[in-house]
């Protein structure tokens, strides 16, 4: 692409990254969540991949790092749910809610202002799923672009 597109992509990409991380981190307070935030970040990655050529992008984004990010996301999701057995509860029980520790402030019923340090294990789940979707969807576009380079188009 031309120099204008590359400069615009350089300027816009940090803002897309910060917005996606905001959607992931505030998933238990505002609309959004892990899947949506990860998809927003992957769209920003697709913008950079489209603006530059594959040979340049391949030096910045490693396929092994993205695949490891995806594996860490899925394993972390299952692991956070499995820790509930250590508390003597069933699978997917929200053991951190109203416990007073990390993300453990109790929430009253009704309309309230919202506090970032609430939610039990829901923010941890959001970060796991966001990490997985970020890695997975960027990896799909990167692999398709590598197949296009191999055909010699």
């Amino acid at each position: 692409m031309s120099r204008i597109v590359r400069t615009a992509a350089d300027i816009i990409y940090p803002f897309i990254l910060i917005f996606g991380l905001y959607v992931v981190a505030h998933g238990h307070l505002t609309p959004g969540g892990g899947f949506q935030g990860g998809a927003v970040i992957a769209t920003g990655g697709a913008l950079v991949i489209v603006a530059y050529s594959y040979a340049e992008v391949r030096e910045w984004l490693s396929k092994n790092v993205l695949m490891g990010q995806e594996v860490i996301g899925l394993v972390g999701f299952i692991g956070v749910a499995l820790i509930a057995f250590a508390f003597g509860q069933v699978f997917f029980f929200n053991y951190l809610n109203a416990s007073g520790s990390l993300f453990g402030i109790p929430v009253p019923y009704g309309i309230n202002a919202g506090e970032l340090n609430t939610g039990g294990f829901v923010p941890l789940m959001n970060f796991s799923v966001g990490c997985e979707v970020w890695g997975g969807l960027t990896l799909v576009i990167l692999y398709m672009l590598s197949g296009l380079e191999k055909e010699g188009c």
């Binding site: 238990h28 307070l29 969540g33 809610n97 109790p106 009253p108 309230n112 039990g120 829901v122």
Partner: peptide, 9 residues
């Protein structure tokens, strides 16, 4: 939902 999971959303 708000009391059992601690999420406003």
């Amino acid at each position: 939902g708000q009391e059992q999971t601690g999420t406003n959303n």
